[in-house]
Structures are given as structure tokens and as C-alpha cells.
Design a protein around this nucleic acid. Structure first.
Lengths: 223, 223, 223, 223
DNA sequence: TATGAATGAGGTTTCATTCAT
DNA sequence: CATGAATGAAACCTCATTCAT
């Protein structure tokens, strides 16, 4: 175990894969995991189940991953991958000349909402499991993700600087990003439960209301 | 055989306790559960563990509760109990004559935030588990909880009717309640994870920012 | 525990009952047991179940019976009781002047078959359980039962002495009694299983065939 | 993934065993079960007990069998195996030219009686358990067994057609097979209990008396 | 004496992980 | 390297029996 060079992007607890066969196996496992998570939460997915779906042996899973927990970062990775694809494609928000802050926020929210809904099962796994064993997802992973979110918000704010009243732009963008995430996650991942039931509107209506609120928030000055 | 009066409030899967001894045992179990949940999430708490903390036998737990899952509603119940106590005591927000909407919201948020932080371990259990097995918490329970939240918001809005601009008060209060819950839950229950990290401010600072946002939301008219 | 006088007929492991209340409780328990056995085999009947049906507490059962096993002899007792009632009433075979051995046997078989069918659940319990723990039923109990059966057969044989060819009457009556019991038990207690399926005829048809066989057996001399 | 051929005969609830190792483990478990049943009835044998005797882990038993109940069909299978061996070897009844029906029956009974006595513990398990949970042994299994018994009897009857008086050969062979089974099972499986005590003769004496009775039965015409 | 709550040994089953083939 | 059988700790749950009220 004195080898360190990574052949693919590697997460916590993952083992290096030099050979082509290895990489293929890894891919199969990742796909299987994705598919299993669409059916039930991570802790109800057994390693045997994943192996079977992947068409590999249990032992093969353990050759690639130190243990079951080491699969969690992979989920995060899948999600990031999807996010990138999305950002480059349909997710690329087209903001026209004549869009004002409110409509820009609306467009953004609607797009984001669609992605989230589609990949809910992945985020759900990370979301739930990260809470049971926070150490599984290195802080740096969240960091990267967070920074991107805050950055995006900052960009928007500076683009519409004239329509934004709040002064403390660092704090404002951080809070906006946080709120956005929280409310999306609650309703996106668990649409049928508790807090989500409070607001019985769905789809674009929901996204629009969020846009409205953020818009308002940016419009009102600190005390 | 005219036993009809319930000795304690009973939840899903719980068995009736008529005798004093039963109620004592139940109390011990509930306390043990509360304490265990401060240390680890529900699914990592074993029945044997609870029994030991409670100083009773495993069988005693099963005499009071049909199975382990039947303990989840109890967690909810403990939380409600704390909520009531809180609402009657320190939670009773004192809104002065000269408080405006913004400061009323602020007071309310700070109080709520304190309760949530203190009882996070309970809500965390319900929150997580309700998602793995939604059937465990009867929809009516959530309903009650939700309605209370929405009602509270409605009351506040009508009290400060002159400062609220939004027209659709039903939708407005529902959304406000939803947002409030979501963002509080995210940061309150899982302060060290993903979305919460986006907004690195804590305590009253966080509560105040929430109040600010809701205040703004109520101040800005629909399109 | 130096008291020995029995207040009621007592079996192995049963405790004496002097007072009226006790005897009433005992009666209730016995009835409850009878009813429970109509639904499932003895080892699937719990003591709590019996107590509930009897309308007494679990502890009361244990006050009357040393342990669960001590109930088995009671089942035997119930059966004997029924047998006596039956023998005195409908079971009293009326053998007319002009009945020959064959028709006498037939009448007897049909009657016996009816009783057995009706009380199958009791005999089933004794039959199954006596096999798991033979020590529960004192040999003397079986003995009494056996002797009666063999006696009955002997009586019949001597009554129709002229039509019986077999010499060794002791052995003959013993065997006839044994055969009778075996084949009745198999088909009577477990009509839907293995050996019983071999002979797909029911009710009187079955009883008659048995009579025929025994008749033949009595008619054919030893080698 | 073209694994289709079953490596061993499989029963209800049993899992496929493709590898050599699996089959070895299965064999060990089966042997352990056989040995355990010689000591106590099935429901008093624990899975841990079986595993220990077999020298395998508890999990190994569960890898081969869905649950404890799934072992019952195996007992039946062991018995069938022994039956086959026996039928091919010592069980092959030699009927000489000069054997008449009576002596043929005698030979047959004595042989069968010996097998039954030797494998009583197996049949006892099936016999008892099949009654507590009939669904465990597929009806087809009994059917096969039954048909063979009835066939055997039919063959004998037709071979000695001239000495058999009964007309309805279908009914006759069915009844004879049934009687044979019942009386053998009672005395063979539970020699120390109730019905068996009625006939205090053992071994060949018992077998001979059975032969005699069947012989008589075949000799006497229907009414 | 009756009650039924409490006990806890003992059984079944699951599944992450190891390791012989 | 891949395979999948074997492992066994650990969890859940039952129920005969005891014993405080």
C-alpha cells in the first residue's frame, strides 16, 4: 500500500485503479449505486445489492473501495458531474439585456429547481448520510461546492449592483446562497414531509416565490 | 373491564399503560431515549442501549412499545412537550407597543432559534427517520405542527397588516412559515454540514438575518 | 407443600385448589385452553393468550399450574371428560339382537369416528406434545386409556366369540385396538396430510372400510 | 453469467449452490441436521446448534437456506435418499416362487419396519412439523410419496390377483397403503406413547401381525 | 389471593467484511 | 485480479416465569 498516484479522481477511502479493467469496474459500480439510490436510501442498499446490479462480485467492490462508507463521496462526485454537465448545457441561464434582477432570479431558480428535482435521489443520499457520519465527506468537498454557490450569487449581485440595496455584499450573498440551498433541499428532496407541506405549491410557482423573496431581501437595506 | 381512559398520550405502536408502574417505566424509557439521542442518531441506538440507560429490561421496552420504530413518535412527543413548556415560559415573545414588524420578527426568530438549538437532537431524529420511514409519523402530527406554524405567521401578519404589502395572505404566510422552518432546520440540526457552511454566522446574527429577509419579503408586492 | 388431599382431580404439576374462587378460575382456564387449541397447536398458544381468554391474570394461571407444561395433562383430562359424556350418551352403541359382528363393528366405528372428529383439537394437542415431552403424561394415564380400549375390544370379541376365528384373544384384541387408534388418529387429527391423503374417502365410508378390515382380521386364523 | 444447471436437488426456500465449496457446506449442514434430529425434535434444535455441529458459521446456514423452516424439506429429502438406497439394497424384497400372498406381505412388512425404525428420527421431524406448518412441504412431495406407496400395494395385489378377493382394487390398495402407513408411523415414530402401548409386541412380531391383518383384509369380500 | 408489569435468556436473522479458489 | 462463499458480531424480538402491588 505504498502507491499513491491517482489514476482517476479519487475520494476518501477509495483505492487507486491503474488498469483499464479496474476503471471499467469502478464505472459499473458507480452506475449501480446511482440506480440503487433511486429506489431506497443508502443505508438500506446492501453491498451485495450494488455488486449484483453492477454485475461484479462483492469482493470487487471491496477491491475498489475500502468499505461501504467510501461510496458516499462517490455519490457526491456523481452529483457534481451531473451539475457540471447541466451548467454547460441547459443549465446555462441566458440572461437577456432587458432582464431585470427579479426576472434573472426567476430564471435561475426555475432552472436550478429542475436539476434538483431530477437528481434528488443523489443529493438525498449525501444529505442524509453526511448527517449520520459527517467525517465521510471531507470538508473541502463541501467547501468547493459552497464557494461555487456563493460565487454565483456574488456574480449576480454585482451584475445588478444598481438594484441591490444591501451593503454587506459578502454577508448578503452568503445568506442568499444558504437560504436558497435550504429551501430547495427541503422541498426538493423530501416533497412529502413536514416542512414542505407548509407550502403546498409546486414547480415553477414554488421557484418563483423563492425568487420573489430573494429579490425582496436584496432590495431592503440593513437596519 | 371498563378501562378506557388513557393514562398517557399514546402514539402509533405504543401500548396502553394503566398502572403507575407502567407509567414510571415509560417515563424512564422516554428519558433514556432523549439522553441516547444526544449522543448518536436513532438507528445507531440499540434497544438494549435504551433499556440499560433506563435501568429496565429489554422486554420492558417491548411491553410498552410494539417495536423499535414505535419510539420515533415518542421523540416527536418529547419535542412537542418541550415546545409547549417553552411557549408558556421563556418562549412567550413580549411584543411591546413600540415594536415594529421588523423588531417583532427579530424577537420571534431569536427565541425560536434558541429552542431549536437546545432541542436539536430530538428534531434531528424525527427529521431523519421520518424520511426513511414516513409512515411512522402520522400525517396528522405533521399537520398539527404545520398548521400551528402557519397560524402563527398569519397572526403576525394581520397584527401588522398596515406594514405588510403582499396581498395573497394565505400564500404569503404559508411560504414564510415554510422558509422559516427550512432554514432553521438546516442550520439548527446540522450546523456542520454543506448548506449551513454557506452562511458562517451563528446565533443571533443568523436569527436576525432571517428576520430581515422575511421582513423584506412581506414588504415587497407581488409582481 | 406438605398438603396432599386433592380438591379436584389433579394432574402432574397442578396445584391444589381448595376455595371456590380457585375452582372457578381453574374452570375458566381449562375452557380457555380448550378454545385456544381449536385455533392453533399448543406450543403456539401463549400463557398470556390463555389468561386473556379466561379473563384472569397470567399470575393466576401460574397459581394453579406449576408451568405451561402442566396444562397438557389437563387437555387429556378434558378429553376424558368428553369421552365419558359421550360414552354415556350418544356414544352408547346400541347393538341389536340381529346385528352380526360386521355390522356391530360398523356401528362402533361410525360412532367413534364422529367423536374423534369433533374433539380432534384436544387429542391433537396431547398427541403432538406428548411426543415432544413424553414425561408430561404419566404412563398411568395412557394405561388407563389403553386398558379401556383393549377391554372394549375384548368384550366385543367375546360377545361374538362364535364369529371370531383368531385364537390368541389377548394379542388379537390388543392389535385390533392399536390399529383402530392409529388409523383413526392419523386421519382424524390430520386429515389433510401425508398418510391420510392415501385414502381419499371420508366420513362413514372411511369408518366402514375400517370396520371391514377389522372384521376380516378377526375372521382369518393365525398361521 | 450462464449459470443455470442446478448443482443439487433443491427444495422450498433453499438457495442454489453452484460451487464445490457450497455443496460441501450444504452437505455438512445436512449431516449436522440429521445428527441433531437424533437427539431432539426440530423445534428444539437451534440454528446455532446445527452450525456448530456442521463446523460452519451461522451465516453459512442462512446463505444456503432462506430460514430455519427451509430445512424441513431437507429432512424429507434425506429420508427419500435413505429410502432409495434401501430400496436398491437390503430393501429389495426377494419374493420366491413358492411365496404365497401372506408370506410375501410378511417379508415386505419386516423389511419396511426395519427401515422405518432406523430412520425414525427423520420421519418424526417431517411428521410433526408438517402438521404445524403444512405449507413447508409442497403437496407434490407427499403426492409422490403417496403414489409410490399405493402403486406398490397395487403391484402386489395384481401379482397375487388370484388370492385377492376384494373387487374394487383402487379403493382396496389405497386403504391398505393408508393403514400400513398409519400403523407403522404410530409405532415406529413414537414407540413409547399412547396408541403404541396398546400393542406391546415389537419388531418382527409386530410386522407379522400387520401382514396378517392386511392379508385378511384382502381375503374378505366387500359386503 | 389476584393482578399484570417486569424480567432476561435465548432464538432468529442480517450484512459488512474477509479470504480461499 | 476477480469471484462469491464463509464468517460472526450484533441487532431485533418473544414469551415463560417471577414478583411487587
Amino acid at each position: 500500500m505504498f502507491l499513491n498516484k491517482k489514476a482517476t479522481r479519487m475520494s476518501q477511502g477509495e483505492k487507486p485503479a491503474y488498469q483499464k479493467r479496474s476503471r471499467i469496474a469502478r464505472e459499473k459500480i458507480v452506475t449501480a449505486l446511482d440506480s440503487a439510490l433511486r429506489e431506497r436510501p443508502f443505508d438500506q442498499v446492501t453491498v451485495a445489492d450494488i455488486a449484483q446490479r453492477a454485475g461484479v462480485a462483492v469482493g470487487t467492490v471491496y477491491r475498489r473501495f475500502e468499505n461501504k462508507d467510501a461510496l458516499i463521496p462517490v455519490v457526491m462526485e456523481i452529483y457534481e458531474h451531473r451539475l457540471e454537465e447541466w451548467a454547460a448545457g441547459e443549465g446555462a441561464v441566458q440572461i437577456d439585456e432587458d432582464d431585470d434582477l427579479r426576472s434573472a432570479l426567476q430564471k435561475m431558480m426555475r432552472q436550478a429547481w429542475r436539476l434538483l428535482t431530477r437528481e434528488a435521489h443523489l443529493l438525498r443520499a449525501v444529505h442524509l448520510y453526511a448527517r449520520l457520519k459527517p467525517e465521510l465527506i471531507p470538508e473541502s468537498d463541501w467547501d468547493k461546492y459552497n464557494k461555487a454557490a456563493v460565487q454565483g450569487m456574488k456574480a449576480l449581485i454585482s451584475h445588478y449592483a444598481d438594484q441591490v440595496v444591501r451593503k454587506n455584499s459578502k454577508r448578503t450573498s452568503a445568506f442568499a446562497a444558504y437560504v436558497l440551498n435550504s429551501i430547495f433541499i427541503e422541498k426538493g428532496l423530501y416533497p412529502n414531509e413536514s416542512p414542505a407541506l407548509l407550502f403546498p405549491y409546486k414547480g415553477d410557482t414554488f421557484a418563483d416565490e423563492c425568487a420573489d423573496m430573494l429579490f425582496a431581501y436584496l432590495q431592503v437595506p440593513e437596519t
